[in-house]
Design a binder for these strands. Structure first.
Lengths: 223, 223
DNA sequence: ACGTCCCTTGACCAATTGGTCGAATTTTCG
DNA sequence: CGAAAATTCGACCAATTGGTCAAGGGACGT
């Protein structure tokens, strides 16, 4: 994993104009790469497999991304912003319970709508985060510190039950991403129920209820 | 991934006596294999790497496990029972809140004491559970169905807030296993705090509080 | 229609992979 | 001890891997 971080896609004739074909093919490649990397991780994925799924030959793929590392990096980059957004959107001025509910909802929707992104990060982190490591202890840590401070203020003001803000955030990550990362297991256990329209709603309602019951102060949400 | 499921370890002279050396080496191999498979998954792991970590040559390793599949299978098998135990131990006759608390504690301790096992299953499931698939929809599903019925009874009797039992179990899995699977991320964010003695206690307390607050009926656990 | 750049690919390469084999070494046990 | 069995490992193999290269085919503005 060499730090081949040149500007964009490491194609041959460096900063040309971006052709139509280039645009199309890079997208096809990144889609295929997301699929493969999110299933097998960096080491388990093969360039041939990605090329096949992208509908092109391996040398052709390597014309757009010269090394396996470059593809991986590009996919991670493309997915990163989307992944950080939900927590960034947590509003310090809002109502605690409503903000946390909204955060759970956003994360859960992301797990439903883009499970591959979730799995991609999961694989990267489980393999020791060789690429994302710096971002985790840099940008992500700063973001979490900031939002944890907000939550701590809320609990300090008595607007939230006294829970450790970091572990609360971890719990939200864990529970929401679980639906993407362990989809296969959930399907095995719930069977065809997963296909039913209310499956997602049930998951959401359960998460909201447990979290809100666990952190709300004063009134006890029953019913 | 051929179904080479012969009795035990697929060694050459089939059902001999199990030598001392055999016992020792198989253990060394399985330990090394757990380390490697749990980090890179089946496809990302290499036999050479496992052999190196086990302190022997590749042909020597392959004398004990003839194929990569056999090693993988043996590791999964060795880890499976331990992994199912906590849920099996959930006592239908016990006090709902106490039983669920105890379940959370057991799972969390397992994540702390054997994070590699957690990661091994996570990798297997994320790669589509090619091996464990049948167990997930067979034995695991039966176990979960059974315990979900217990929880449903509890909520029906008003001894637990009305939450979907399956998703409640998923939440416990997600939150507890998160500490093993995403250890690297947690370390990046919490920094040296992870090393402090009270880290585990804080995690446990937070989980218990949120879950119990979320599912307890009647009294509202604060402080 | 033409020249220029872009795109595509078959053939190829060195390294790595999972796995075999036979010869040598060590362990076991009567 | 001594022989049979168990273990170890260097050498080897075919397949797969990430990656290169040169030559041909296509797109596009003029």
């Amino acid at each position: 994993m060499t730090p081949t971080s040149d500007g964009n896609t490491a194609r041959a004739g460096q900063t040309r104009k971006r052709t139509r074909i280039q645009e199309e093919n890079e997208e096809k490649i990144l889609d295929a790469a997301l699929e493969v990397f999110s299933t097998y991780g960096f080491r388990g994925a093969t360039v041939d497999q990605i090329a096949l799924l992208a509908g092109m030959t391996k040398p052709n793929l390597l014309y757009y991304f010269r090394r396996k590392d470059d593809i991986y990096l590009a996919v991670l980059r493309r997915t990163l912003e989307m992944w950080l957004t939900p927590l960034e959107a947590l509003n310090p001025e809002g109502d605690p319970a409503a903000e946390i509910t909204a955060y759970i909802d956003r994360k859960l929707e992301l797990s439903r709508d883009d499970p591959k992104a979730s799995r991609l990060f999961a694989m990267e982190i489980m393999q020791g985060a060789p690429i994302l490591g710096e971002i985790l202890s840099g940008r992500l840590k700063m973001l979490v510190d900031e939002k944890a401070a907000v939550i701590r203020r809320w609990t300090g003001e008595g607007r939230l039950a006294p829970v450790d803000p970091y572990h609360l955030i971890f719990m939200v990550w864990a529970t929401t991403q679980h639906y993407a990362d362990f989809d296969v297991q959930i399907r095995a256990i719930l069977g065809e129920r997963v296909e039913r329209a209310d499956h997602f709603e049930t998951a959401k309602r359960t998460l909201e209820r447990v979290f809100l019951g666990g952190i709300a102060t004063g009134t006890n949400n029953s019913s």
